[in-house]
Design a protein around this nucleic acid. Structure first.
Lengths: 251, 251
DNA sequence: TCAAAAGTGTTCTGTTTACACCCATGG
DNA sequence: CCATGGGTGTAAACAGAACACTTTTGA
């Protein structure tokens, strides 16, 4: 194959446009489009959900999809994921973690695209969405996600597995809950994430033994007649324990 | 900013060169260089090592580096990692796993480059290297790796953590050993990976309880006068157990 | 005969699991 | 006064950690 024309074009592009005036050492190499796709997990105090949108551009227009966007030259991937999340949903300051990079040659029929998947954790009730795409967005129960474009279903499976693993060893579950929550809600959350029933007494004993929650004098009266005490996660205490005693969060 | 010239160039490039004749839906987006870097772990029956090369091109020529290369349009990332590994070391059919994607804007002073890190596991003694770069390559004890270019030290730290986690739940340790190995060697390996001393009796009891090794009639006489029995990993048995009983490898 | 590594079980401790009844309240 | 979810402890099973002596054989 003769890439000589291609090489000249890339030279031109880099030299004329690179904003940092870096040297173009690697001018003979192929360039690709890098996308970011976000798996957005939410919890509504009962079920674990994911946020999907109906794609409003080709290819695959009208089909369900993760939210996504393309990496710009002026940002790194974490920033791109934050930007995509904020642009499409209005949310910022959200827990985001890089998951995996997908690169099958024909994964996107529109054009060769490599996609870096991220997952995000948000509290469904505590946020007011006002992103540009929000009218076409919908929360799906994690167990009832529709067929998605490209390899997005595969991404979700991997994100579920990662969330399961993380939730067992880091207190990221609290990202999905409102600031004040009941033990019952916390247990519901873990049952959804781990996809199995937990024993109420064992669960509460375990959580209390970690000693990272503060029990409030306040009760949530919305579910039972007796009411359930509200708790908050004490992040400072958790971080102090981690540093001082080498404490490891472990459900 | 006016990208109109840039856009035209990209249009031209995609339309003229794309080998699959895909449509160029995303022509307004930035393209980037995608590199692959490999953390190559090896075990020489005593210590865990990593393979590094002295970089023979700019930028950072002459400094120690992971082996790496650029993604081509005709391959996916797994294939790129395999190609890089084979080209530079002559090795193929190696355990490879994607680790993380690094994208800090100035991570490579030569040019904006995104790098997808992979890690590989090989048995140091069982392979004959004959790759193009092998004269500038050197095995470093994992605890004595030098300062590397870019963010490569960070990649190694992440790879070590991943290896530790994987080795506890999947039998990937055997990728680092010769086909026949002694219990002592297996224990050495795990001590290196986990970076802690293990109790000999507890370790052997644990391994034997997994019931996935075959003890041979043969002894390794090279270390002790008494000699140590050799074992082989029974991959078929392991996989049958995983499928049939839901067996989980767990050290 | 001795130095050096191989091989081998039991006890103890801490963690995980299983399990059932009373409490408080609003309707 | 009763239906509903909230709150609480103990015993058994299991898994992980600690621990020391005998065997083999080449030099």
């Amino acid at each position: 194959m003769d890439f000589s024309i291609h090489k000249k074009i890339i030279d031109l592009e880099v030299v004329e446009e690179d904003p940092n005036m870096q040297l173009n050492y690697y001018q003979k190499e192929d360039q690709v489009l890098l996308a970011v796709d976000c798996i957005i997990f939410g919890f509504d105090k009962e079920k674990l959900k994911i946020l999907l949108i109906k794609r409003n551009f080709d290819p695959e227009k009208g089909k369900w999809s993760l939210i996504g966007g393309f990496l710009k030259k002026t940002e790194d991937l974490d920033q791109a994921a934050e930007r995509v999340l904020e642009t499409l949903t209005g949310l910022n300051d959200i827990y985001l973690e890089q998951l995996h990079t997908y690169s099958k040659i024909d994964r996107d029929p529109g054009q060769r695209t490599i996609s870096v998947a991220y997952y995000a954790l948000i509290d469904v009730d505590n946020y007011r969405f006002d992103g540009i795409q929000i009218d076409s967005a919908h929360w799906f129960d994690i167990k009832e996600a529709p067929h998605l474009i490209f390899d997005h279903n595969e991404m979700i499976e991997k994100a579920k597995a990662r969330l399961k693993r993380r939730a067992l060893t880091k207190p990221i579950g609290f990202e999905l809950l409102p600031e004040k929550f009941t033990m019952r809600q916390l247990q519901n959350l873990y049952e959804c994430i781990l996809d199995k029933k937990l024993d109420k007494r064992n669960f509460i004993n375990k959580i209390n033994s970690l000693d990272i929650l503060v029990k409030l004098d306040e009760k949530d009266m919305s579910v039972s007649r007796k009411g359930a005490y509200l708790y908050v996660f004490d992040k400072d205490k958790y971080e102090k324990k981690v540093q001082e005693d080498g404490f490891i969060f472990k459900i």
